[in-house]
Every structure is written in structure tokens, then in C-alpha cells.
Design a protein around this nucleic acid. Structure first.
Ligand SMILES: [Mn+2]
Ligand SMILES: [Mn+2]
Ligand SMILES: [Zn+2]
Ligand SMILES: [Zn+2]
Lengths: 145, 145
DNA sequence: TCTTTACTAAGAACAATTATCCTTGAACTG
DNA sequence: CAGTTCAAGGATAATTGTTCTTAGTAAAGA
């Protein structure tokens, strides 16, 4: 498991390589992603960054999220109701488990799904590029209420 | 396999039972869903209904979609970009295969996923109520271009 | 018939995201 | 270290899919 610091350095190197500027705002946003296990929303990231950089605009967060998505360093978990969430720790397709009450999102342990993908690919003739799997339910904490 | 007509009658009975009125608009919208294998969008349904009822408003379609979702007779396939699609033929969770170019959506044949659900339920302590699984790729027709 | 309630059409409101436009500052040059 | 340049940031308007509100209509019930 790569350290958070190492990961940060790698992404910075990748940004430099692609001629993207390393700005304080980008660094701040990036750090939020690399230190969040809770799959934060844009709004969440914005609030956190504002704590250190009070002038940061929401548009900048959106732009940076877009950039990080583009270079494959964060994963977008898209929801129909427009409350997208992001995973900066595992930026590749993997299942998610969502509490319908408190909106907590965790990564469930689950056996690999590659066989499913190839099963579908074989049967359909589609060339499959990615997938998204979400389970919706009630978390243990919310069940108690 | 229940006939489309039988299904329509059943849903009408269910609506009546729950004191919802059977209006021409609702019937028209319902029929579009029961005769579409292509997972239509709200906009698509709207256009189709307008052909027979030119004064129908988009809001009515949204409301009817909401109602049919509520009573469990259509399945919403939610997308983050706000282009939701619906399945009136199989109104229960099942995988979908989406072409990223032409946006075609089909139901891939795929072995049952219940074991996955219980695997996650066991390991996490969450009570799982539903799930959503999508594969994104390029359909055979679009691959040729 | 009179009353009550559900429903529809139209358009306003809403909320997340994107575009615009001007200003700023990161990175490169010498 | 300047000086230069153009990508990036800040502020805010526009967009877009969806939901809400309102006022009018039609059906059901007394
Ligand atoms: Mn995750
Ligand atoms: Mn389907
Ligand atoms: Zn919860
Ligand atoms: Zn296609």
C-alpha cells in the first residue's frame, strides 16, 4: 500500500508532466481527497478547503475535480439526484454500499467482479470499458434508530 | 410471460385500488412504457405521448413517472448527468449494459446476483434494500464506425 | 345538484453544474 | 531576480433536468 505522501508526490509529478500548474488551491483540494475515506461531495471538499483558503471559489473545486477525474486520480460516484461523491483513494471502478438514511458510503469487501464483466462481454458483443455497482440499504447505526 | 394487455389491466386495477384516477394521459404514458424495450427517457415518453395528446405537459409526465415508480411498476435507471431512463417491462433491479456512444441500453443475460447481495450484507451489517449495476461500453454497431 | 377531491397544464422555482469574463499568479526566460 | 505569458482562479450568470405552485377542470360522492 502506497503511502498518502507518495501518492501525492506521484500525482503532482503527473500534473507537471502534463503541463498543469501546481497551485495552492489544487494542492489543498487534492489533499482533501487523499485524506478522506468517506467519499466526499464537491460541497464537502469546498467547505474543507475554505477552512484554509477562504477565497477559494466553488467553480475552482468543480474545475479541479474535473481535472483529477480526467487524469484518472479520483473516481466519480454519480447519482441521479445530483449528489455526486468522489473516491480519491481507489480511483478505479469498485462496488459501493450506500446508506439511504445518512448517505454514508463505504467500500464493501467483495470478491472480484471481472468474471461478470467478461461474461457480459461474451454474451453481448459489447466492448466493456467500465462498470458501476451500488448497493443501497441501511447502515448498522441507522438501523438502531 | 404475462401479456402486455394483462399487465396493463393489472396496473390499472392497482391504481384504482389505491384511489388514483385513470386519466387518458396516464394511460398513454403507461402504454409507452409497456411497449418499449429500449428503456426510454422522460423526454422520449413525452414526445411519444404528445403525438396522441398534444397538450400534455412535461410536468405531467414527470409526475406519472414518479407515481409509477412509487407503486413499483417501472424501474428508474438513474444517471448522474440527469438523463434518467426507465424500464417498464422489468420493474425490479437488474443489470444494464449501456453504449457510451449511441446511449442504447439493453438487458444483458447474466447469472443471478443475489449471492453478491447477501455476501455484502453479511460482511457489512448493512440491511440491503436494492442495488444498481451498470456496464458501460461500445455496442457492436458503434464498434464498426 | 352541490360539494369535495384529485388531476392537469403552464410556468416559476430549484439546485447542481458549467460557462463567461476579467484578474491573478505559476512557471519559464534570460 | 525581473519580465513575460498564458493557464488558472474568482465572481457570478447561464444552463438544465426536475420539482413545486397555482389556478382551473373533471370526476366521484352526498
Ligand atoms: Mn470507494
Ligand atoms: Mn432493463
Ligand atoms: Zn446510515
Ligand atoms: Zn452504440
Amino acid at each position: 500500500m502506497k503511502s498518502s505522501q507518495q501518492r501525492l508526490d506521484d500525482i503532482i509529478a503527473k500534473l507537471r508532466l502534463n503541463k498543469f500548474r501546481i497551485t495552492p488551491q489544487r494542492l489543498a483540494i487534492l489533499k482533501v481527497f487523499l485524506n478522506s475515506t468517506e467519499h466526499p461531495s464537491v460541497e464537502r471538499v469546498y467547505k474543507q478547503v475554505r477552512a484554509d483558503f477562504p477565497t477559494t471559489s466553488l467553480a475552482t473545486v468543480y474545475k479541479t475535480v474535473h481535472l483529477l477525474k480526467e487524469i484518472g486520480e479520483i473516481l466519480e460516484i454519480g447519482f441521479a439526484d445530483g449528489r455526486n461523491r468522489y473516491d480519491g483513494l481507489k480511483p478505479y471502478p469498485h462496488p459501493h454500499l450506500i446508506c439511504m438514511k445518512c448517505k454514508a458510503i463505504i467500500d464493501p469487501k467483495l470478491s472480484n467482479l471481472d468474471h461478470l464483466t467478461s461474461e457480459v462481454e461474451q454474451a453481448s458483443g459489447y466492448q466493456i470499458l467500465s462498470h458501476q455497482l451500488e448497493f443501497f440499504g441501511i447502515c448498522p447505526a441507522c438501523q438502531k434508530k
